[in-house]
Amino acid sequence: MSDSPLIVLDHVSKVYGTGEVAVHALNDICLDVPRGEFVVFVGPSGSGKTTLLNVIGGLDQPTSGTTIVAGTDLGSLNENGLTRYRRDKVGFVFQFFNLVPTLTALENVELVADLVPDPLDARKTLETVGLGEHMHRFPSALSGGEQQRVALARALVKRPALVLADEPTGSLDYETGIRVLSVMRDVTREMGHSVLLVTHNSEITRMADRVIHLRSGRVAEVEVNPSPARAEELRW
């Protein structure tokens, strides 16, 4: 694996609107993220966490600045290029799961596995996240935590270089949230994925290798955690 950072953000800004109603969601962000780390972005509402995640995930283009992920300059990509980038390099986990309700857990994972030439085995991936017994159930028959683990399996099955998780525990109760974080941490570490997780829950920062504090669209602080906690140790 190369020693170069997985993500390089160079003076990245994102402005919504113009003139007096312009909102600076990201304001001149410069940031390097090494490979293989579990990184948590934390900050209050409106601090730019999700916008930053969307820029890194190729869902949004910055107004200015350069975004390089796994050696790819996202600014140089057109819509098709961004689609390929997302398909090949990024796995997403969202707060509201966004599972297809008419597909079973296994089929939801296979839906994404169909996209890439060399995916992981969908069944094994579900077993990895602890859903081996429920893989033929539809989302409506799964609990919130189970649904989020399906979403995680769906993100991982493509063997992405990077997993982006936006408030993955936001819709879950404490115990389920802990379970999801635990699986996410263990599986991504085992598979060697980098994880970028956005949350407003500061307790989750304890399990991160690196914590990036955002405030008003700026990086307020970057904290490196030499001894991350296990998910089961978190309390909120």
């Binding site: 819509e79 980038y85 997302r86 398909r87 997403f92 969202f94 966004n98 839906l111 493509k158």
Partner: peptide, 14 residues
Amino acid sequence: RGIVGFLRASGFPA
């Protein structure tokens, strides 16, 4: 809408 957003985010072309 959310599912379509996810599919597009996951790399399904338009």
